[in-house]
Design a protein around this nucleic acid. Structure first.
Length: 565
RNA sequence: GCGCCAGUAGCUCAGCUGGAUAGAGCAUCGGAUUUCUAAUCCGGCGGUCGAGGGUUCAAAUCCUUCCUGGCGCGCCA
């Protein structure tokens, strides 16, 4: 809360020789409540005054006199600690939440700015499996985070709908597919063809050449190839959409790699004109040796383009189309080098916006005994996971709250919420080992825990039945459990800012865990509804504000907040 | 071999832009409900912060070496 930090800084300014903004930067929040609300560490002053920090703090605290909104000033070790006037603090925070409602947490720092976010971006002809979750969920959350901060967001699904693999698929389809009968193909069929191709190609390498040939035909616009390709794409998109609907993940555009096929020619031309290319081992490359990187391949020896070529074309197109301030790629960390190369080429092409491209990488999802692999069929399908989660929740509802209405809706919201929260609750760069029991655990630091806390608050409000007012006696919220919670609620906006700065949704998940832990502590020690009208009104406001923060936070993560469960 | 990332309690993680006693959850043991949903709460147990060296008044946090694991390193994406 700036207001309090500023008050403290202006007090300190008079007694030290430091600048006000310098002081503000030094002020921190003590690790535990009993130490106070804000603290000023005296190490810097100690150096200037050449006195031990403890005595600096001691002397400083004696010369400082608390004036509203500061209630008490006390030296503890090398720190001068400040205790705020709780009633004033609570009033500022809770009034704000009460006024802003769904908008609480938003800070308008992004208006007029555009951020393009590239996420999910799965490959056509394969199922969406659990390891595809991360990009989609992290991207979706980042989209919401930036939206909350007033940015214009463009979510793009950069489908993997181009590349040699389509040559492989066409070969497989022609050789072993049911072409004549035109049976209704599913992604499973396509995937089987893909797996079979790799099995056969291991024995017969000539197949790979055949596949490359077909991809070249496709790239050249061969009608037969294109028709098949479109067919595969339609099948895949239909199935992807089913999952996106379940997860409620939205994209502003589905623009796959194929879209840039007509543009790569010009892109390569521009790179050539800048004199960046050379031919090496028959392939067209940009030599990045001076930057300690392997070369960036633009064209294979058969002239077909590569992933990097299309990514460069896509970046140019997106700049032209959206004039973005930032472009975010939510892609696994195994592609770090690839993006470094692409950014370097963009930079060498003379684009000053190259440094506004950010690779938001994330760790691999794997099994205990190794990597997930589509080719080996070693995957868990996303749909299976989601259905299992929903079913398990359904059983728990039957057990704990059999009279609940809309069980199916709630089971879906809680089951999917659990999966989303589990994925977004650790720092994105960490590798995650997929374990059913961990994802489908609903106790402790989980999505259902947050949702359950929210539902209980709703339940209290329902029972209260009257309008919530912020016109209460704020002196009545001074218990440690209440005040710790209020302080916690005040940190929501800054948490969102930090999550945006680091592209880190887990900061919000962890924040929500904190809020709920504090709320539950309060809930278990103090009764909200009582005969004392004033206390009830005050606590109801706290309950309602907490409910609002939880709801807003979950919404950013892409999770529902059911009123009952 | 070179490069990037990680190593914190039995397990999963937070803390990492240096600061006050290294925090949670799971598991385990014990306790709380005539009262707002016990998917909750309280307490016990559990740590040479991978190892060594360094910088600093102060290191889980910064630097360095080593160990272990993951990922990447030209015609896949």
């Amino acid at each position: 809360m700036d207001y309090f930090v500023k008050s403290i800084a202006s007090l300190l300014k008079e007694k030290t020789n430091l600048q006000e903004d310098e002081i503000e930067k030094l002020i921190e929040i003590p690790p535990v409540q009993k130490m106070g609300d804000y603290a000023f560490p005296c190490y810097t002053l100690s150096k200037i005054l050449k006195k031990p920090p403890n005595s600096v703090a001691e002397e400083l605290s004696r010369t400082l006199h608390p004036i509203s909104p500061i209630a008490e000033i006390r030296a503890i070790g090398p720190y001068v600690n400040f205790f705020v006037d709780k009633a004033i603090f609570s009033k500022i925070v809770l009034k704000k939440v009460h006024e802003e409602q769904d908008l609480y947490g938003s800070v308008d720092v992004g208006s007029g700015k555009t951020v393009v976010i590239d996420y999910s971006s799965p490959n056509i002809a394969k199922h969406l499996a659990v390891h595809h979750l991360r990009s989609a969920l992290i991207g979706n959350a980042i989209y919401h985070i930036y939206k909350t901060l007033g940015y214009n967001c463009v979510g793009i699904n950069h489908l993997g709908d181009w590349g040699t693999q389509f040559g492989q698929l066409i070969v497989a389809y022609k050789k072993w597919g049911d072409e004549g009968a035109r049976k209704v193909y599913t992604v499973t069929d396509l995937n089987n063809l893909y797996v079979r191709f790799h099995q056969e190609a291991a024995k017969n390498p000539a197949l790979e050449d055949e596949a490359r040939e077909w991809f070249k035909k496709l790239e050249a616009g061969d009608l037969g190839a294109k028709e098949l390709w479109q067919h595969f794409k339609d099948i895949s998109l239909k199935e992807f959409q089913k999952i996106y609907d379940m997860l409620e993940i939205h994209f502003d555009a589905f623009i796959g790699e194929s879209f840039y096929n007509t543009m790569v020619e010009d892109t390569v031309k521009r790179i050539k004109e800048k004199d960046l290319t050379k031919v090496s081992e028959e392939a067209l490359i940009v030599d990045l040796e001076p930057y300690n990187m392997p070369p960036c391949l633009l064209r294979k020896k058969d002239d077909a383009t590569l992933y990097a070529t299309r990514d460069i074309a896509a970046a140019e197109y997106r700049m032209k189309t959206y004039n973005f301030d930032t472009m975010v790629y939510v892609v696994g960390s195994e592609q770090k080098l690839h993006f470094k190369q692409v950014y370097k080429v963009l930079e060498l092409m003379g684009y000053d916006w190259a440094n506004r491209c950010v690779h938001v990488d994330f760790g691999l999802m794997k099994f205990k005994d190794g990597k997930m692999s589509t080719r080996k069929g070693k995957v868990i399908l996303l749909e299976d996971l989601l259905i299992e989660a929903i079913e398990r929740v359904r059983k728990i509802i039957e057990e704990k709250n059999p009279s609940l209405e809309n069980k199916d809706v709630v089971a879906k919201e809680v089951g999917i919420g659990a999966v989303i929260f589990a994925d977004l609750s650790t720092r994105r760069t960490k590798d995650v080992v997929f374990e059913w029991e961990a994802v489908l655990n609903f106790e402790g630091e989980t999505g259902p825990y947050i949702q359950y806390t929210h539902a209980r608050l709703c339940s209290i409000l329902r029972k209260y039945g009257k309008l919530v007012t912020a016109d209460i006696n704020y002196e009545l919220l001074k218990e440690d459990e209440a005040f710790t919670l209020i302080k916690n609620l005040s940190q929501f906006p800054s948490t969102i800012l930090k999550a945006a700065e680091f592209y880190e949704p887990s900061l919000i998940s962890n924040y929500l865990i904190d809020v709920c832990a504090n709320l539950n502590r309060f809930y278990n020690t103090h009764r909200v509804l009582s005969d004392d009208e004033e206390i009830t009104k005050a606590r109801i406001l706290l309950v309602d504000s907490t409910r609002q923060v939880i709801r807003n936070g979950l919404s950013i993560l892409g999770i529902h907040s059911p009123d009952r469960m």
